[in-house]
């Protein structure tokens, strides 16, 4: 059952990603990417990460993709632009590079991780069930990773200031 659900969502994610990179209209690309992100959120639920799945829907499919669509609307790029997809040579190079990369990644995937790194089966699922989805992530985030978490706020502040400075015509 889990495997069937996993492969269904995986097929939807991959098909949407293919459509995302081949549609000529940027709006269509963005909407197919949203579809991919939703399928990935479903896969996260199957992989015992319900909190990350919720964040994925809220932040990625919600906030970031709305930002993309907003910029497409702002620059009036909704119609198809000629010459967006590269010619036959560009396509050949892209497909060749993609095949090489798939080959390398499959070779890496076949090299299994060392067994002593693995937790006993069901440990993470048990933690999520015992502490709840939010607390299971919050405890390592605020204990082990407190300093990176605080540095992240500085990063976000820099991004806010940078975006305003770059996009504003006259300060």
């Amino acid at each position: 059952m889990t495997l069937v659900a996993f492969w269904t969502f995986a097929a939807v994610a991959i098909a949407s990603a293919v459509l995302c990179i081949t549609r000529r209209s940027p709006v269509a690309s963005a909407l197919w990417l949203v579809n991919t992100l939703f399928s990935l959120a479903a896969i996260y639920v199957l992989l015992d990460a319900p909190f990350i799945a919720a964040i994925q829907v809220l932040v990625y499919a919600g906030a970031i993709m709305v930002l993309f669509l907003f910029v497409i609307m702002l620059l009036n790029l909704g119609r198809t632009a000629p010459g967006d997809i590269k010619g036959p040579w560009g396509r050949a190079v892209a497909v060749a590079a993609g095949l090489v990369l798939v080959f390398e990644l499959v070779a890496l995937w076949l090299a299994a991780p060392p067994g002593e790194l693995e937790l006993p089966a069901g440990t993470v699922a048990g933690t999520v069930a015992a502490r709840g989805a939010v607390q299971a992530v919050a405890r390592p985030l605020f204990q082990g990773y407190l300093v990176p978490f605080e540095v992240t706020s500085v990063l976000l502040l820099a991004a806010i200031v940078g975006a305003v400075v770059l996009a504003k015509r006259r300060l």
């Binding site: 994610a13 991959i14 990603a17 293919v18 995302c20 990179i21 081949t22 940027p26 991919t36 993309f68 910029v71 497409i72 620059l75 790029l77 632009a81 010459g83 967006d84 997809i85 590269k86 560009g90 396509r91 190079v93 892209a94 497909v95 590079a97 993609g98 990369l101 798939v102 990644l105 499959v106 890496l108 995937w109």
Partner: peptide, 18 residues
């Protein structure tokens, strides 16, 4: 791996910055 490769192919294939 497949999704990452599709992303790379998209970067190589498209000319639209967005």
């Amino acid at each position: 791996a497949i999704l990452f490769t599709l992303g790379v192919v998209g970067v190589l294939l498209r000319r639209n910055a967005i």
